[in-house]
Amino acid sequence: MEQHKEETLQGQLHLLDPATVTFTPTPGGYLSMTDGENTYPRVKLCRALPYYEPEKYICVCNPEDGTEYGMIADLAPLPEEQKALIRQELSRLYFMPTVTAIRSAKMKMGFMEFEVDTDLGPRSFRMRDPSRNIRWLTPALDRRVQLTDCDGNRYLIPDAMALDKKSRNKIDTYLV
């Protein structure tokens, strides 16, 4: 731990060694981590760049206060079952149904009311200020579009240009 603090002060990243780090599921449904002789009974995982690099830069933190135990630079060198465990745990932190078609999008009483088809079935939601809440997720990389509703739920359009024309016309105004 002392060494860890020293690293933080020097601005170094504490990268976890894929060879020594092991994650094990806990009975409560979370993950524990052993790194060499250190054991952490429950760790919290999160992506540093969830949209740019979902499979890289995974942070392992203390669930209580958020202090970082270390970072997994890349999932690739980890064994398959470890990767699966980590991916499963990460998937619980992000919920973003994929929109396959937009049935309707109408302004009503200052809110845009959406009815969409998603990979998880039809959904309807309300959105405040569409010019802020319909946006390119990673404009430099691809054509993903994120919709955020007034509760804070997110919806993903994997490729705005691949949407059918009727659907796209409904949000085209805001895709600038």
Binding site: G28, P63, R92, Y94, G152, R154
Partner: peptide, 13 residues
Amino acid sequence: AGCGELCAKTAEG
């Protein structure tokens, strides 16, 4: 992000 969860802190973890 887009969801939340509940966790119970118990004596067993």
